[in-house]
Design a protein around this nucleic acid. Structure first.
Length: 284
DNA sequence: CATTACCTGCAA
DNA sequence: TTGCAGGTAATG
């Protein structure tokens, strides 16, 4: 499940592999044209053919591939999407639904077993709208208690729901939300508005370190994630709670528990992450 | 605000 | 055979 570190890994590698390349054509799977869409009435191939790829940015879990002038391609891998760079002559990747051919003989392949994600030809207005819809970048200088506390204070519900809200913090998913909460020793169902400043600062630090560590390991491959070279990420060995329900806590030995929070499978340690029922924190 | 739909492979 | 995996849009 690609989250911020996986998308950042893809971004870095695509930056090295396809920036400054010229697009010579595209292919779309007729059985799943939704894998590469554009504005109504626009022929995607007409727009992109002959254009160069100028830069590749990331916003939350989205990739923004700039094609110069007004156009860019926004990509989201959702659950099982993969972007690989292969020679044009190479066989289709598994579940290949779209392809971008490059003048140097390579091609970008979009594969997606579950067809949740895809590519979208986008205008600057689309990119601005995306930017405004998404919350704070957790690896930016904006991610600090002074900015996060007011958002949490006004939000009802568990802290885990808040962490997964892309409009609040952009890029966290189920894996890194659970990992950050464990390291910050905060119960996933702790009321978001009940966290005091020191807890929020602790959470900010653990989110940063969990994400940075995962980027160093080129992402977590739990099931299907692959980078543009077709390689798995090495971060699985750093996970302390995700996927370890029923196993011993690596810190205290207690059996890790699992339940659903925010509609997601959630794993936590009942000893290391106590629920604070009567926090002194007062919300005005 | 919370819940469901979208998909498909795989484990139980 | 059933249900779970989960990011996001749509719905209640």
């Amino acid at each position: 499940m690609p989250e911020l570190p996986e998308v950042e890994t893809v971004r870095t590698m695509l930056d090295a592999l396809i920036v400054d390349q010229i697009i010579t054509g595209i292919w779309r799977d007729p059985d799943h044209p939704g894998a590469f869409v554009g504005p109504d009435g626009i022929d995607i191939e007409d727009v992109v053919r002959g254009r160069g790829i100028t830069c590749i940015d990331r916003r939350g879990k989205y990739l923004i591939i700039s094609l110069g002038d007004p156009w860019s391609v926004i990509a989201h891998l959702r659950m099982t999407g993969r972007l690989l760079v292969l020679p044009r002559s190479a066989a289709p990747v598994r579940f290949e639904h779209a392809r971008i051919e490059l003048a140097n003989g390579n091609s970008v392949r979009y594969g997606d077993q579950r067809k949740f994600g895809g590519l979208r030809l986008a205008t600057p207005e689309d990119v601005d709208a995306l930017d405004e819809r998404l919350g704070i970048e957790p690896l930016s200088s904006q991610f600090r208690a002074g900015n996060l506390m007011p958002l949490l204070a006004r939000r009802p519900g568990p802290i885990k729901n808040a962490l997964l809200d892309q409009g609040m913090i952009a890029g966290l998913g189920n894996i890194y939300a659970d990992e950050a909460l464990f390291r910050a020793r905060i119960h996933p169902r702790q009321a978001a508005r009940s966290l005091d400043e020191s807890s929020v600062n602790r959470l900010i630090r653990t989110i940063r370190s969990v994400l940075r560590g995962a980027i160093r390991n080129r992402g977590t491959t739990f099931s299907s994630f692959e980078n543009p070279y077709g390689e798995s990420g090495a971060n699985s060995r750093n996970l302390r709670v995700y996927g370890r329900k029923g196993e011993a806590c690596l810190r205290c030995g207690q059996t890790l528990e699992g339940f659903r929070v925010a509609g997601r499978g959630t794993t936590w340690c009942p000893v290391c992450q106590p629920l604070v029922l009567n926090p002194e924190k007062v919300v005005d």
